[in-house]
Design a protein around this nucleic acid. Sequence first.
RNA 1: GCGGACGUGGCGGAAUGGUAGACGCAGCGGACUUAAAAUCCGCUUGGGUAUCCCAGUGCGGGUUCGAGUCCCGCCGUCCGCACCA
Length: 855
Amino acid sequence: MSDRFDPARADIRWQAAWDEAQCFRADDNSPKPRSYVLEMFPYPSGRIHIGHVRNYTMGDVLARYKRMRGHEVLHPMGWDAFGMPAENAAMGKGVHPGGWTRENIANMKAQLKRLGFALDWSREIATCEPEYYGHEQALFLDLYEHGLVYRKESAVNWDPVDQTVLANEQVIDGRGWRSGALVERRKLSQWFLKITDFADELLEGLGSLDKWPEKVRTMQENWIGKSQGMQFRFDLSNGEQLEVYTTRPDTIFGASFVAVAADHPVAQSVAMTNCDAAKFIDLCKQGGTTAAELETAEKLGFDTGIGAKHPITGEYLPVFIANFVLMDYGTGAIMAVPGHDQRDFEFATKYGLPISRVIAASADEAGKPFDGEAEAGDGICVNSGFIDGMPVAEGKAAVIARAEAEGWGEGKTVWRLRDWGVSRQRYWGTPIPFIHCEVCGVVPVPKKSLPVTLPEDVDFSVPGNPLARHPTWKHADCPQCGKPARRETDTLDTFVDSSWYFLRFASQPDDKPFDPAQIAKWLPVEQYIGGIEHAILHLLYARFWTRALARIGKIEVKEPFGSLFTQGMVTHETYTINRPPTEEEKRVFGWTDEAAHESITQYLSPNEIERRGEQVFEKATGRPVKVGRVIKMSKSKKNVVDPDEIVATYGADAIRWFMLSDSPPERDLPWSEAGIEGCARFVQRLWRLFGQFDASAEGEDKAVDRKAHQTVAAVAEDIESLGFNKAVARIYELAGVIEKAAPSASRSEAIRKLLLLVSPMMPHLAEEAYATFGEGLVANAMWPEVDPSLLVEDEVTIAIQVNGKLRDTEVVAKGLDKGSLEAVAVANAKVQAILSGATPKKVIVVPDRLVNIVA
RNA sequence: GCGGACGUGGCGGAAUGGUAGACGCAGCGGACUUAAAAUCCGCUUGGGUAUCCCAGUGCGGGUUCGAGUCCCGCCGUCCGCACCA
């Protein structure tokens, strides 16, 4: 065995050996217990990001570990290959989205291979290939046949200059990212999936997901947003009725005005005759469509002059059109209670409307003024007629009961969850398989004609949807009447692609999306791993899609992901230097010489800096560099590192080890050059240790045996709970113990165990060393057995406290009874010194842990 | 704005309500070496009148024999918000 482990040679050698032996190919017919380990598949942006390395290393360790425990493991990989970046590349660089994407996939696949992941590449899928999206179209038609797909009008961000629909991320401060034009909300007829039909199920289902993080379940619960409230009607002064919904019927006596959304029919009809109202509605249409934008915008309103008769007091309340009322939630109209809703409070303050208290902590506080903000909390009803004195919950029920008795309203459950709009006015996505016929209306493409494929010859020289302006593609004959008709030119949201890919991984027949029998065998995914940023949308859509397929009888499984883990981001320091502006910049930005002394802050990449002791300098110029905050790696801040370069310098095992070390996997992991060097040193340290394996060594070393068995048991637990950083710490400890131990059979056996323990984490090093043992591939080895009798210690160190403060420790036999422990503690010299003859008031004894003497 | 999380040495972190700082990184000292690298050994929360004592887990309160952990109120940071993936 050579003294140094050479990753450059070993990585390639063992990756080839695994390929050759097809170690990681999942056998659909295996009799072994199954484990489906899945990491969220990547968008093929071109290069693997270090965050991917972290994600896939975690999954890989688990997959390899499960194999060692005798499981048949499905660990697949694919590409979420549709989406905007490919179109942006097409517009920016003049390349075809398909060519660009496929090239990226080839590059990233090679990068993943260099990291030595135990993936079943025979099941690789790319969502942009007709072999995948054709099946998606078929599933979409199945949902359509079962009434789960429909069309309705919905708002999009419209760029009036580029004449195109913008994604939310393309709207910056209310303006289009390319044109700079003020964005408008415009309505288009679009395709929707009836996720709201499943709102109850999706909410209920969360209860069974006990292996999901609590926070993700809470976020989904809030997102679905079930609320029980009251829907009721105001009689308007113009003779019409206005239906409103409220979650707080208990505050009805505090209503001081009524507000409707800008696109509410009442607002529209006012606008017909009142041009100020029409102008106001136009004003409301400015800006983007995101909730954050709508809710942080200044509260604006327009008094329609209409009065709404309060159903209990009979008083007339003014009706406003308000920009903070959402048409999509409830009825698009609200009763506003400024005292107990912050938005209403701000609005009332601005427009001088009454703010009255109807909830208070107690009856005596009925007259208490507000402290500059609404009070949304609990309490009892005050100034509220027949519900005075009732707690909030009781007040709600009483008001609903009265409304129902008098016929002007009723209790109603309302969901925050909206139906899923899947139409995208873009090229690089799954074509929606429908045809618009003037005679027959909207007609599905017959399944035998699937897939509807994207045309290759498209023009990205102007903004907008290339499908819509393609000269021939959209012309198709109506499948029903045969007359010339028009193809749907919208494509599907890419979240649809990622809502069923885990099913296709488990089974991929040519003639249908999947084989239900195989789905039943592999699903649910035993462990799903990905970023927290997918906590709501992707995970909710995938749950919905799975349930929808179950409801229409395509599969049995209802929840796709049995256990979910959300990993943290990889972060890095930022480096900046200040430099004076160039002549060019002075000219372009119009800086005068006086202003030009203000220097420009420029980011540097980790490659462009060097450390000399504590200080950091720019390599090229030697100027001092300012070290900034540790933040998420991003291209704009240049604080990125390239996994390929790391692998080339330190080897795959070192970067894998770094990804698992130190930070708990759910938290952020700060990348550091020093850290990766430490990992590379540990790889070599293990190599030297493995080289000391001596099958002929004799003699027993109980302490080493004990440590080895304890570590095997603990690391197994840590891996199963994805506590990789804890497993890493234990492996360091075991390595330290073995290094200090004298040669013995126990020591050699401990070295063998250590090798097996690290093999899921550093598979190349482990193979290289295991090869010298002559026992085949470690990838096919079994996890070491644990002797339970070696797990327990016979002595323990207990803490001796006086008044909860540590004063000493004592080593005692494990399991010593309370009385003896108390005697040991009281006899302790330091305790005696502190007590100085006094009798303890009380003694608390926790066996094997501590004794606390209360003096 | 709404929803969700997080906060412990110089840094990443460990700690079923029971010895705070395991383990790693960085740093310092030493051994080996002509020298360097590599490797090995030791030290490393702060303060003090230093074999000992005091303080200490973002801040302020509380529960408890005992709180990093539980409760209440702040402060700070991060993530999501439906057309980024």
